[in-house]
């Protein structure tokens, strides 16, 4: 019989809602709440030896100490499997489930898993380290969520190796595993092509990253000669020393700098910290990335109204669509509040 430990927040443990989110960590014997649904699914194949309960706010206020307490508890009870949640689309709860699973598996070697809505914040943070099954976005999907947790969880407890995420019914962990096949790549590629040409279903072996949402074009600038134009780049141009610590790749940060500083280009000089291209030509003359000299000349000639006083920069290499969209939103809002009419973006 598989011995399961189960993690729940205050809500699913029946303590209360948001007003009880500071409920302290406690250990209860046996199954509580969704744990009973888990046992209905496992039948006699498993028992829940302990339920670990913690309020969502309490968990995030004292994460390290609570994780230590959970690890100490399970080091003693030695369950075969830890199930956390399911947390559905709950932000704090999902993150707590991810943290608990990752601590228990990494520190005790006990297999663990949780169930979350595929777009929940915990997925971005823990997908590479924690086994997760997809659930609906609310507890209305409890039955299906529990069935998936039990199916995948009992496999983990039995030592069954992970297969491809879609075959296992898991959220992809973001890495590829090499397998030996009898059919060479050229032949598989041709099979895919033939299926595509014949209009038959086919499945790419390489998952493409999530694409950007198409956005309808913004209205054109009516009168350039009175327009304020801003410069934006993803080529990683920052003042020497990179004061805003924009990442060289997989950026999560952006910054804006006065074009007056760039026009002088001394003390501090501007350099590219982008790790995805050879920046020697840009470092020698940043106008090759952010065309300030040309735009200022056109402003002086009256072709445009004015060059916006800041240019905006981040690094566009390995940057996730999620972060790129968020940074784009933030930059767009800053441009709007500064009264910018149009933007020139340069990409390396």
């Amino acid at each position: 019989m598989v011995r399961i430990a189960h993690y729940l927040n205050q809500f699913f443990a029946g303590i209360g809602g948001e007003d009880k989110a500071d409920a302290p960590f406690e250990v209860r014997e046996g199954a509580v709440g969704p744990g009973r649904a888990i046992l209905l699914e496992t039948g006699d194949d498993a028992e829940i030896v302990q339920t670990l309960v913690c309020g969502d706010n309490a968990f995030h206020a004292g994460t390290d100490a609570i994780l230590d307490a959970i690890v100490a508890t399970l080091a003693e009870s030695k369950p075969d499997l830890l199930i956390a949640g399911p947390a559905f689309n709950a932000g704090r709860y999902g993150l707590a489930c991810g943290a608990v699973c990752s601590a228990v598996s990494e520190r005790l070697g006990i297999p663990s898993l949780t169930g979350v809505y595929p777009e929940a914040p915990a997925v971005d943070v823990y997908r590479s380290r924690v086994v997760m099954v997809p659930t609906g976005d609310s507890a209305a999907g409890m039955r299906e969520a529990v069935a998936s947790l039990v199916r995948v969880g009992l496999g983990l407890a039995a030592g069954k190796p992970l297969g491809p995420a879609d075959e296992d019914g898991r959220i992809p962990m973001g890495y590829r595993k090499a397998v030996v096949t009898d059919v060479p790549a050229a032949r598989r590629a041709l099979d895919l092509l033939m299926a595509k040409l014949a209009g038959e279903p086919f499945l790419s072996e390489v998952a493409l990253p999530k694409g950007a949402e198409p956005i309808p074009p913004a209205p054109a600038v009516a009168d350039l000669s009175s327009a304020v134009i801003a410069l934006v780049t993803d080529g990683g141009l920052v003042p020497e020393g990179n004061p805003d610590r924009i990442e060289s790749s997989s950026a999560t940060r952006w910054a804006r700098y006065p074009v007056a500083d760039l026009a002088g280009n001394h003390d501090p000089a501007f350099l590219s910290i982008h790790a995805g291209y050879d920046s020697q030509w840009v470092d020698a003359d940043p106008n090759r990335l952010v065309p300030l000299d040309a735009l200022q000349a056109l402003a002086a000639e009256g072709v445009i109204g004015k060059v916006h006083e800041f240019f905006y920069a981040t690094t566009g290499t390995g940057t996730t669509v999620t972060h790129a969209e968020r940074m784009g939103e933030e930059i767009a809002k800053a441009l709007i509040s500064d009264g910018v009419h149009a933007v020139l973006v340069t990409s390396t």
Binding site: G211, A212, E213, P214, I215, P216, P217, A218, P219, A220, V221, V232, P291, A324, E325, M327, G328, E329, I331, A332, K333, L335, I336, V340, H341, A342, V343, L344, V345, T346, S347, T348
Partner: peptide, 30 residues
């Protein structure tokens, strides 16, 4: 995202097909 907020944005890039996939609307090969 900038265009989504109603500000037209021209995208100057060598990799124009990449700019298109990334969702830019006004792309200039440069």
């Amino acid at each position: 995202m900038i265009e989504k907020h109603g500000i037209p944005a021209a995208h100057l890039a060598a990799m124009t097909s990449m700019a298109k996939i990334a969702g830019s609307n006004r792309i200039i090969s440069s």
